[in-house]
Design a protein around this nucleic acid. Structure first.
Lengths: 255, 255
DNA sequence: GAGTGGTCTAGACCACGCG
DNA sequence: GCGTGGTCTAGACCACTCT
C-alpha cells in the first residue's frame, strides 16, 4: 500500500482516505470485504487513530464503506450505494457517461431578466443577466438544447470567451463561483418546430426538459438552466433513500 | 440555551447537536446567521472542542449549517438545503404532493420471472414472482400506470389482500420487508394505444417512465417497478449536490 | 493581529459482536 | 475475553478571513 507524506501540503487524513479509496477502486478490496481496523491503519500510517477515523468518516459519507459497531468497516455494495446523482455541468455529465461532449454556441449576450428568471436569481425584473444558448452534442450527435441564464455580477468573466468547454470549470477558475447545490425539475414534453429542427428529431419525439437553479455554498443563486434533452438519447439515473442520512450513533435513546 | 447531561446515555456530541438544531428550528438562529464559534461552544458545554466539532460535522452533513474557513459556521438557507431525499411509494408520494391517491387493480398473480426482472431481483429466469398491475389515480383522475414485480419469497403475504393502500406500509407490516434504498432511471416516451386508453390521454402525449429497483438495508432487491406517468400531470423535483453528501430526489408537485 | 475553522496528537474508557 | 468501532479529552499548530 502506498505510504503517505508528512511534508505534503495535502492533509494526512486526505492521503489516507485516497489510499483506501484506491484499494477499493482497483479491486484489491471488494464489496463486503472488511477494511483493516482503525488501530492497525493508525500504526501503519504512523498517525493517531482520530486521523484515521476522519479519513474513514469521509468515505462513509460518500457511501463507499460502512461501519458496523463491534464488527468492523466494510466496503459497500456498489450496485446500490455508489451512484449518487452529482451536480454536473453538461460537459462533465457526458464525460461521466463515457461520451464526448460538444457545443455549438447559438447566442451569447446580456439581456434584461424576465420576471421568472429574476425571481429565481433573486434579482429585480429587468436587471442585466447573461444568456447563453447552446446546442449540445454527445459523440458528435445533437443531444440537447440548452439555455443558460447567469448572474451578470457574479459571472461576467464568462463573456470574455464564451466558447469554453465546461461551464462549471470556467466559473470556478475565472469567476470564483463554486457550484454547491442545485434544485432541478424534470418533465416530459414535445419540442416545438424550431427545437426539433435544431436537434434533428421529429416533432413528435418526446423530450426531457430539465430546469435547474444552481447555488453557491452561501445559498446565492448564480445560474438558471433549461435543458431540453432528446428522449431517444438520454435518461437519468438516481438513488433514493427511505430515510435521510442518519448519523453513526443511532437516533433513539432519550435522556 | 439548554444545558447537557453527562449522566445521560445520549452522547455529548449528540446532545450538543440537538441543542444547536433546536435553536435553528425555533428561529433563534436564522438562515445566514453565524452560530457561536467552536471554542465558545466548548466552554459553554464544558466539553473539548473536538466534541463540539463532531456535533457540528453532523449538522454540516445534514445540510443544516455550513462552515467557512476563517469566517465561521452559518445556518444554511432552508430554501436550498433542507429538502431531504425520500424513497416513497406512489401512495406516499401523492399524499406528500397534497393529492388523494387511488388505485384500480388490473391484475395480480404469480408469474415466472422474465430474464431482465430475474436479473434485477437476483433470481433465476422462470422463478416465481408476484406481478401487480395497477392504474393509479390522483384526486380521482388517472395519473400513472404501474407494473410492480415483487420477490415471491419475501413478499408473498401481499397476495392475501392485494387491494392495499400503501405498498411500502404493507411490506413493512405484513412481510417484514423494510425498504431502504432504490435505484431509479427516468426517461421519456410515448404511450402505446392500450396505455393511452387506460390513462385517458392521446397517444401523442409524452410520458415519463420511471423504473425502480428497491433494496432492503442488507442490499437484497425485493421490488422492480415500472411506472408510466402522464407527462401533463407529473414532474419530478430533486436536489443535487456538487460533492455527494446526501441522497437526491424528492418528488414534488407539477402542473 | 485577532478570531475563526482545519488538522493532528496520544492517549482514555465504553459499547457492541463474536467465539 | 478479545477485537472492533464510538465517544471524549486537553491540548497543539496551521491556514484563512477580516480589520
Amino acid at each position: 500500500m502506498k505510504q503517505i507524506s508528512r511534508s505534503s501540503p495535502v492533509p494526512l487524513y486526505y492521503q489516507i482516505m485516497e489510499s483506501i479509496r484506491a484499494r477499493i477502486m482497483n479491486g484489491e478490496l471488494k464489496p463486503h470485504d472488511s477494511i483493516p481496523p482503525e488501530q492497525q491503519l493508525a500504526e501503519f500510517f504512523s498517525v493517531s487513530r482520530m486521523t484515521v477515523r476522519q479519513a474513514i468518516t469521509h468515505l462513509v459519507h460518500e457511501g463507499l464503506v460502512h461501519r458496523e459497531h463491534g464488527r468492523g468497516t466494510f466496503v459497500a455494495d456498489p450496485k446500490i450505494s455508489r451512484r449518487l446523482a452529482k451536480l454536473n455541468s453538461f460537459f462533465e455529465d457526458m464525460k461521466e457517461r463515457g461520451m464526448e461532449p460538444g457545443s455549438r454556441l447559438l447566442a451569447c449576450s446580456t439581456v434584461p431578466a424576465k420576471p421568472e428568471i429574476a425571481r429565481l436569481l433573486r434579482l429585480e425584473e429587468g436587471d442585466t443577466i447573461i444568456r447563453l444558448m447552446r446546442l449540445r452534442y454527445a459523440d458528435g450527435v445533437p443531444m440537447a438544447l440548452q439555455t443558460t441564464y447567469l448572474s451578470f455580477e457574479m459571472c461576467k468573466e464568462i463573456l470574455e470567451d464564451p466558447e469554453f468547454e465546461s461551464l462549471y470549470r470556467v466559473l470556478e477558475e475565472k469567476c470564483g463561483v463554486i457550484p454547491y447545490i442545485a434544485q432541478q425539475t424534470i418533465e416530459s414534453r414535445l419540442p416545438d418546430q424550431r427545437e426539433a429542427a435544431l436537434l434533428g428529431v421529429d416533432d413528435g419525439m418526446p423530450m426531457l426538459l430539465i430546469q435547474r437553479v444552481s447555488f453557491t455554498e452561501d445559498g446565492v443563486p448564480f445560474e438558471v438552466a433549461h435543458t431540453l434533452y432528446r428522449g431517444d438519447r438520454f435518461n437519468l439515473s438516481l438513488t433514493l433513500y427511505r430515510s435521510p442520512v442518519a448519523g453513526p450513533g443511532s437516533l433513539s435513546a432519550g435522556p
